[in-house]
């Protein structure tokens, strides 16, 4: 089934927005239209890994009025986990003993009574293909490279189209990966409507694109994030579990990777890697930026309105640029 037909199917029952919905969503219906709002209200979103950026994203799509949001993060709340997460009151008597997903769920429910917010327990890698079939959108964060690839592959195995996003923020940098598989949509250009067809590679395929084939001004953050990711994977660390003590090992890995990929080391500045390992905690303004962009992209994919980005987005507060890079095999 194509994405378009899926959407038509969703429209088929022709339900109208209620007066309550029209009043609440007035300002955004003026942006994306009543049809898009209806599609949003029927979409089911899964998020895995509740850090600050994901909390921002969740807030954005709950406000936008998706049908349901399912949260997975079995980690027990610690003070560190709360540092850039406004969904959790930093009072131990409140958060003590609860999982991050449960705590975030409680706050998010309040944001919009029209959205069903719930919690699932489990590890991303253990969820079967069936589990993913319940969702239209899957967003993963704070997990290993292999877990992300696996989840992405499971989404791709389904006959139904599931939009997949991976997101990470470290220090004052953030990255979003998007996989909409085969995405068809139409847009108006000047007076005519033109059909667009975007073919997205999987996470695995995108990361396998040889570095030397990428354009010369490729965002340095792309390479730096891959180095850190590889390091964490090789060391068996969980996402974000790095410190300044790891810097020399990370720099060595960078050198090895650059040699293996025939890429000049200048494309992966040491200073950038140093920032990323020194401060693995998120920087709240960057969470807001990345969570906002991710929210916008998910809304585009569900509503079929607007050009979705393909297939990476990078933001570094140092230079302030929010850049789209297309990383797919030629």
């Amino acid at each position: 089934m194509s994405w378009n037909r899926l959407r038509l199917g969703m429209d088929g029952d022709g339900e109208e927005l209620t007066a309550q919905e029209t009043a609440l969503y007035d300002r955004q219906i003026r942006v994306w239209g009543a049809d898009a709002q209806r599609r949003l209200s029927k979409a089911h979103v899964l998020v895995y890994g509740m850090k600050g950026t994901v909390a921002e994203f969740c807030k954005n799509i709950v406000l936008a009025g998706v049908g349901s949001l399912t949260l997975v993060d079995d980690r027990v709340a610690t003070e560190e986990a709360l540092s850039s997460n406004f969904l959790i009151p930093p009072v131990e008597s409140v958060y003590g003993g609860k999982t991050l997903a449960e705590l975030c769920c409680n706050s998010l429910k309040d944001f919009n009574p029209m959205v069903r917010v719930s919690v699932e327990k489990g590890d991303l890698s253990n969820f079967g293909v069936e589990f993913f079939s319940k969702f239209d959108v899957v967003v993963v964060s704070c997990c290993s490279l292999s877990a992300k690839k696996l989840a992405n592959d499971k989404c791709r195995k389904l006959s139904k189209r599931v939009a997949f996003y991976a997101v990470e923020c470290r220090d004052s940098c953030g990255e979003v990966f998007v996989d909409l598989q085969d995405y068809k949509y139409s847009k108006k250009k000047q007076e005519e409507t033109i059909g667009c067809d975007l073919k997205y590679p999987s996470f695995e395929d995108a990361l396998s694109v040889p570095w030397r084939t990428l354009h010369k001004r490729m965002s340095k953050l792309y390479f730096a994030m891959r180095v850190i990711e590889k390091f964490e994977e090789a060391e068996g660390r969980s996402a974000g579990e790095v410190s300044i003590a790891d810097l020399s090992a990370v720099l060595k890995l960078k050198k090895d990777l650059c040699i293996a990929q025939s890429l000049s080391e200048s494309h992966v500045p040491d200073a950038l890697l140093e920032r990323l390992v020194t401060n693995a905690t998120e920087f709240p303004p960057v969470c807001a930026v990345i969570g906002g962009i991710l929210g916008q992209e998910v809304i585009k994919a569900i509503s079929g309105k607007g050009d979705p980005l393909k297939n990476f987005f990078f933001f570094d507060a140092f230079d302030g640029k929010g850049i789209i890079e297309d990383i797919s095999a030629k």
């Binding site: 300002r27 955004q28 003026r30 942006v31 994306w32 921002e56 807030k59 954005n60 406000l63 936008a64 807001a288 930026v289 969570g291 906002g292 962009i293 929210g295 916008q296 809304i299």
Partner: peptide
Amino acid sequence: AVATTNAV
């Protein structure tokens, strides 16, 4: 007006 732009 939408939330995402304001957040960014």
